[in-house]
């Protein structure tokens, strides 16, 4: 017999203070090599004194960033010690019928960093992303080749529901369920337990998830409000809260800001930087500035090929491939 104590995700809830005290930038050092590169984009950053200790508090970023493609984390790249590898893609190809959407891609996704997938429409970014939690299997015509490992286990060997609990996803269109805010966040927590846990058991987890998604202060007074009455940006943060409520290891984000206004986008971007402390994040984006602002590593895809992969400074500042140069140059030039 499984009791619901076994079923409830064993998480140590960080106290409110931990969340407040955490310093996203404090443990990171600037990359001496890439930091010295003088790419056109970086000039904006280099004009400022390099800051190491300044915490990347959302407020300061919001005030200082503006529309320029300033790296969101105050120019401090996560490049010192790469975190442990969570997912590894070996020769991954995806076909729709016989058309290859992703062609033999090798990639690694690390804990504590944001991997941004960029590329023109139809280049296979979203397909690649949806392959990571086997969501492509919902499409009858999709076929996959190659190996994807989550913590060295082939994802095909995992129960698909287990995989999707460990590799959560946020979609392009905010898709809160037609329920209350509370029930939305509690949804996965409840569904993952054999016995339906009571509200009192779940409430702290819901609080924690909303807190980490930066939505708590806005909704704490009325958690019974219908989720669909929230604004677009709030809905998307609610979806993030729902996705991280069960403490996944990897968070996939499929253009999470493309349906949002600039202000909400800014909030979500700072949230991404905040969340990467305990998650590996893969974000698909059309917005190159966004990829630069939030990405630690950037992968540029073109027609299904992984053209270039590297640290964000390198891909945007000194792209190796001509195709990358054209694409990135077009964006900033």
């Amino acid at each position: 017999m499984r009791t619901h104590d076994d079923e409830m995700p064993k998480v140590k809830l960080p106290s409110l203070q931990d969340v407040m005290d955490a310093d996203p930038a404090g443990s990171r050092v600037p990359d001496p090599v890439h930091g010295a590169l003088p790419p056109p984009v970086r000039r904006i950053v280099l004009d400022q004194p390099p800051t190491v200790a300044t915490p990347a508090a959302p407020q300061t970023r919001a005030a200082g960033a503006g529309a320029a493609p300033t790296p969101g984390h105050g120019g401090v790249r996560h490049a010192g010690e790469p975190g442990p590898e969570r997912m590894r893609l070996d020769a991954l190809s995806v076909f729709y019928d016989d058309k290859a959407a992703v062609k033999s891609v090798d990639l690694s996704i690390r804990q504590g960093e944001v991997l941004a997938l960029i590329g023109p429409s139809g280049c296979g970014k979203t397909t690649l992303l949806r392959t990571l939690n086997r969501l492509t299997e919902l499409t009858a015509s999709a076929r996959r080749e190659g190996r994807i490992a989550l913590d060295d286990t082939d994802i095909d060997e995992l129960e698909v529901t287990t995989l999707r609990r460990r590799v959560a996803m946020v979609f392009q269109q905010p898709n809160p369920f037609p329920m209350s805010i509370f029930d939305n966040v509690a949804y996965a927590l409840r569904e993952q337990s054999m016995k339906r846990p009571g509200k009192a058991v779940i409430a702290p987890h819901v609080h924690d998830a909303l807190q980490r998604a930066g939505l708590w202060d806005e909704v704490k007074d009325d958690l019974d409000r219908p989720a669909l009455r929230l604004s677009g940006g709030q809905q998307q943060r609610l979806c993030i809260a729902r996705a991280i409520a069960t403490r996944p290891e990897v968070l996939l984000m499929d253009e999470p800001c493309s349906a949002l206004d600039p202000k909400s986008t800014e909030v979500i971007e700072s949230l991404i930087l905040e969340l990467r402390k305990d998650l590996a994040i893969v974000i698909v984006t059309h917005n190159l500035q966004q990829a630069y602002r939030v990405g630690d590593h950037v992968a540029f895809m073109y027609l299904g090929d992984l053209v270039e992969y590297g640290a964000a400074e390198q891909v945007f500042g000194a792209p190796r491939a001509q195709r990358t140069r054209d694409y990135v140059g077009g964006a900033f030039g």
Binding site: N133, L135, L138, R164, F171, N175, Y187, T246
Partner: peptide
């Protein structure tokens, strides 16, 4: 989006 959202949360 609702169906996909639920499935992506690890629900069959």
């Amino acid at each position: 989006g609702w169906k996909e959202g639920a499935v992506a949360l690890g629900v069959n």
